[in-house]
Design a protein around this nucleic acid. Structure first.
Lengths: 214, 214, 214, 214
DNA sequence: AATGAATGAGGGTTCATTCAT
DNA sequence: AATGAATGAACCCTCATTCAT
């Protein structure tokens, strides 16, 4: 009679998924160089050896993590809905959803920061990410166009730049919270503060988009 | 005739400064864990032994780098001048100078990103940074107050949040340039693009500050 | 035809045992601080990397050495036999066996001396040694009791103190042989001298135990 | 006007003495390899550099420490007095004084143990110690001879061996206190225990020396 | 008589990875 | 499909010592 140990498991998919998930957490926590493969393995029910068995090495595992993280985000962006809202409300809504979304996915934002620390050396290998359309950007494009048609928004606006405005703001609050918080003595994650900040970027952007005489 | 070797030198200040400078470049380039002390030493005319002699260790060197970088930035911020400009122009000016300033100090921004990857664990040890006043923020505060007095700007605006808006935007373009550039197929450092982006944040912020009926 | 290298071997038990054995010799020879892990490794067929693989580090290896050495001594003490001897002969026998035993285990005695130089800081971590009974002491206790019952030995004798008397004498000859030998110009390991010394402590102790009117 | 810093001092004798004294404490505390020259210097008001200036190096300093320690002990031994006591009392007295003396000079005993760990490699360089007479041994010799003449002590006794008996016992209690204390759960420095042990060795030795029919 | 600056050589340890079944 | 054993290369750091005044 064979007894199932906690280690031995005949479910490759599950093992792989567990490795990927824990590697995501580990890399997001400590960066690429700062994460040791032992550390990742210790979080799982398998051994370090399996990382090489399933992924080939630390770098490949990191690539899988990165790709997987972006895929998840895209998936979530596809859920965004602003139908039935007038353009101003739609932009505000979009900004707020983006804000919430970023605050909820600290790991992802940290992975992106890490990747930039590495000069984007890894992401550049992921062709799968390159051409995929950016759902959030597409949606924004639509809304901006709608606003312009209705004469509510100024014309000559590059959706990418609006996206940049919103993204910068949302990303910064997560990515730079430690230094900003320390230097200015504020806690950006404080609920009250967060509520204020949540609405701000939408207001700012729409103020600009709707600015009279622009 | 003996020639002086390139190594041996009796100029402690210079040796220390060189180490600090090269360490700054190295850490900004590869992060804390990603930088090897040998690597730093190889950039200088001394040996890695001197890192321990002058700083005590890798971590202390990194701390010195971090502190020095922030000190430099503060110094630069103190040079900012917007006297003689009306509030709207002043904010725009401030935003543009901040923008330029960030783009010119990629190393600093990378160090800040790195520090955030480390959850601010190092900067928290630098009490010298905590209480020091933030020149840029003070200046902004003055301008906002002036605008409010003149009835040009809305009231009830937290200078810190305006600062956050501007900083986010400027920092993001440097810090996230690799992933953003890759994903959207743009080069944020392209001069033409940069010129457009340079003015944008000031316009956006002032549009909001001056929004009628606010 | 490939020949098996001397290094590569798939016998963990043996590798471990070899490391332990050579480490014992090395630590006994040069002390804890005086022994380099490279030095230990060079004595074996593996590399120093294996010390970390099997033991975790220099300190843990030393702890294993210490524990192992004491275990070996205990094992040997369990072989002691004085059955069928009258109490006086038994004590003499015990003293002589202890003497021989110490002279034969110079490494052990040196390890003990080294441990005392370290203020017992390592041994205190070895709970396995604390509560284990001390075979030699138990045997001695029996003999002393027997002698007292037969009216041959004085009463009111603490076996531990008798043990201390004998141990001191035997340990000293090994542990302090270099300074003592140098200062008094004698070689304590000289066979003739040793034969004299071998019997001495038993005689001294029994003279005291059997002292009339005590 | 020159002000005297705490460091700068123009008293070579004092500096040298301080170094010697602190080095003694340091070496006795941590052994030869375990003591770092920085550590010694930090205990004094001078710098590490002075160790090289005054002694030439770590080894020479250790040699000076060793020689100085032995010189001090010899000096103390010369103070021993047993005049006016009968031989039995004299031996007991000598044993007790030796006992006290050892317990009071733990540093010296540790230095001796350390020297033995190093196989007496250093002491062998100190010719000054070799030929010097051993006061304690000479005194013992006299007493033993007196006892033999009076028919109280057995003849054919090597004073060196009696000295060895007493020394072993006294040294062991200090040198091996940590392992012995740990293994047997006793504190050899406990005052009550110490009082018992103090008298023991004299009784044991005299019991043997006076044994009838020897 | 004394010192600040500098250093070569090694110290213990950890890293991602491969061997061999 | 999975794994225990082994490892080379490098990593950060510390040691006793010397240079140069």
């Amino acid at each position: 009679m064979k007894h199932t140990t906690e280690r031995q498991q005949r479910d490759p998919e599950r093992t792989r998924a567990e490795l990927l998930s824990e590697a995501t957490a580990a890399f997001a926590e400590s960066g690429y160089s700062g994460t040791r493969v032992d550390e990742i393995a210790e979080r799982t029910r398998t051994t370090k050896r399996m990382i090489y068995y399933y992924f080939g090495g630390k770098e490949q595992l990191y690539l899988a993590v990165l790709e997987n993280a972006y895929r998840g985000i895209r998936e979530a962006e596809r859920q965004l809905e602003v139908d039935g809202l007038d353009p101003v409300q739609a932009v505000r809504r979009l900004a707020e959803l983006t804000y919430d979304h970023h605050l909820e996915h600290g790991d992802f934002i940290r992975l992106v920061a890490i990747e930039n620390i590495h000069h984007g050396r890894f992401i550049r290998q992921l062709d799968s990410l390159r051409d995929a359309n950016q759902p959030a950007l597409g949606l924004l494009e639509e809304v901006l166009e709608r606003g312009r048609e209705q004469g509510v928004f100024r014309g000559n606006v590059d959706p990418l730049e609006v996206h940049l405005l919103i993204s910068s703001y949302c990303v910064f609050q997560v990515a730079n919270q430690h230094t900003f918080g320390f230097l200015f003595g504020v806690d950006l994650r404080d609920p009250e503060r967060r509520d204020r900040l949540r609405g701000l970027i939408g207001e700012v952007v729409t103020a600009w988009l709707t600015e009279p005489g622009a």
